[in-house]
C-alpha cells in the first residue's frame, strides 16, 4: 500500500518539475514575443501563476516523503532513546492529523467552487477549482506520509542520496 503512495508521490513530483520547466519557457516566450514581435500574449502571466500553484502542491508530498519539511527541532534533537521516538511519533501524528484536516477543508472548498462555477480573475478565466484542486490533492498525499511516519518512524529516515536532490 505504501508502494502505491510512493508511486503517486513520485508521479506528482515529476509533474511538478515539468511545470517548473514550463514556467521558465512561458516567460521566455513572452519576452521574445513582446519585445521582438510586439505581440505580448494575454495568457502568459495567468498561466505562470496557475502553474506555480500546481507546482507547489505537487512537490510537497515528495518533500514530506523525504522528511524535509522545515521544523525547529532544537528540543527534539536534545532528546534520546525511547522518549525521542515517542516525541517524534506524536509530532508526525499531529502533523498528519492537522494536514489531513486542512486537506478536507480545502476539498470541501474546492467542491463549492466546482458547484458554483466560480472562475479565476485572470485575463484567461478558467474554473477556479482546476487550480484549487491541487491543494487538497497535495495535502492528502502529504498527510499519508506523516501518518506512515507515525506508524513506522524508520520510514522518516531517508538516506541522503534519495532525499538529497
Amino acid at each position: 500500500m505504501f508502494r502505491l503512495l510512493d508511486v503517486l508521490t513520485r508521479a506528482a513530483f515529476y509533474l511538478s518539475a515539468v511545470l517548473l520547466l514550463a514556467i521558465t519557457l512561458i516567460y521566455c516566450f513572452e519576452i521574445v514575443s513582446r519585445y521582438f514581435f510586439n505581440s505580448p500574449t494575454v495568457w502568459s502571466t495567468d498561466t505562470v501563476t496557475y502553474f506555480l500553484g500546481a507546482m507547489t502542491c505537487l512537490a510537497i508530498p515528495e518533500v514530506a516523503r523525504t522528511n524535509r519539511h522545515i521544523a525547529v527541532t532544537v528540543f527534539v534533537d536534545a532528546m534520546h532513546g525511547k522518549s525521542k521516538e515517542v516525541a517524534q511519533r506524536v509530532l508526525h501524528l499531529t502533523a498528519g492529523v492537522v494536514a489531513g484536516g486542512v486537506a478536507w477543508i480545502a476539498l470541501s472548498e474546492t467542491l463549492r467552487l466546482y458547484k458554483s462555477g466560480i472562475l479565476t480573475l485572470g485575463t484567461i478565466a478558467v474554473p477556479k477549482w482546476w487550480i484549487s484542486a491541487f491543494i487538497p490533492l497535495g495535502l492528502a498525499l502529504l498527510t499519508l506520509h506523516y501518518l506512515r511516519f507515525a506508524i513506522d518512524p524508520t520510514a522518516a529516515h531517508v538516506p541522503a542520496e534519495q532525499g538529497g536532490e
Binding site: R34, N38, S39, P40, V42, T45, D46, G122, T123
Partner: peptide, 26 residues
C-alpha cells in the same frame, strides 16, 4: 500603434482597436 500598454482585461479590446498591444501585468 506599436505601443505596449498595460491594462486589465476590460481595456484589451480598446487598446487593440487603437493599434496597441495590450499587456496584462500586476
Amino acid at each position: 500603434k506599436g505601443r505596449k500598454i498595460r491594462g486589465t482585461v476590460s481595456y484589451h479590446p480598446m487598446i487593440k482597436a487603437l493599434g496597441g498591444a495590450p499587456v496584462n501585468m500586476p
